[in-house]
């Protein structure tokens, strides 16, 4: 085995977070302020997955006060504490960049369909003003 692969494997998390494109997720991120450490949650929709193995990253998009915000997280970063999948969206693309063109009710379309357990239609809507951290 190549030494670079070994080095990368050593740094990978043993249990990498599991998620899919179109999932509504809560990403817990470690934040250091001075000598204090706290956990911030960034929740949104996974719209893209890039790279593979040790270098894999995913992009989470959410709407904050009418403005779209995207963050890219490396999944093996020690700063990422956990990725919690709230619900899955039925999508037909690997990259949901079309979400950038959508506003308001348009953004909820893809979450209409649950993967396994069908949820009641009212709960499916993502509330952009929730979880403002």
């Amino acid at each position: 085995m190549n030494i670079i692969d070994v080095i990368e494997k050593e740094q990978m998390k043993k249990t990498a977070p599991q998620y899919n494109i179109g999932d509504q997720v809560d990403v817990s991120v470690k934040i250091v302020e001075g000598d204090k450490e706290r956990i911030q949650v960034f929740s949104g929709v996974v719209i893209a997955k890039n790279g593979g193995g040790f270098k894999e990253t995913f992009t989470v998009r959410r709407i904050v006060q009418g403005e779209g915000v995207e963050r890219v997280f490396p999944i093996h970063s020690p700063k990422i504490v956990s990725v919690k999948v709230i619900k899955s969206g039925k999508v037909r693309r690997a990259k949901l960049y079309y979400m950038r063109e959508r506003t308001g009710k348009g953004t909820r379309l893809q979450e209409k369909f649950e993967k396994e357990v069908p949820a009641s239609a009212g709960e499916v809507l993502s509330n952009p003003n929730k979880n403002n951290t």
Binding site: I4, I7, Q11, H76, K79
Partner: peptide, 22 residues
């Protein structure tokens, strides 16, 4: 020279590194 990769610092910052068999 072996090649390049990345490593994380303790703070979770990614540093691009070159591996050298020395």
């Amino acid at each position: 020279k072996i090649g390049m990769t990345q490593i994380y610092t303790g703070d979770g910052i990614i540093i691009p590194v070159t591996l050298i068999q020395a």
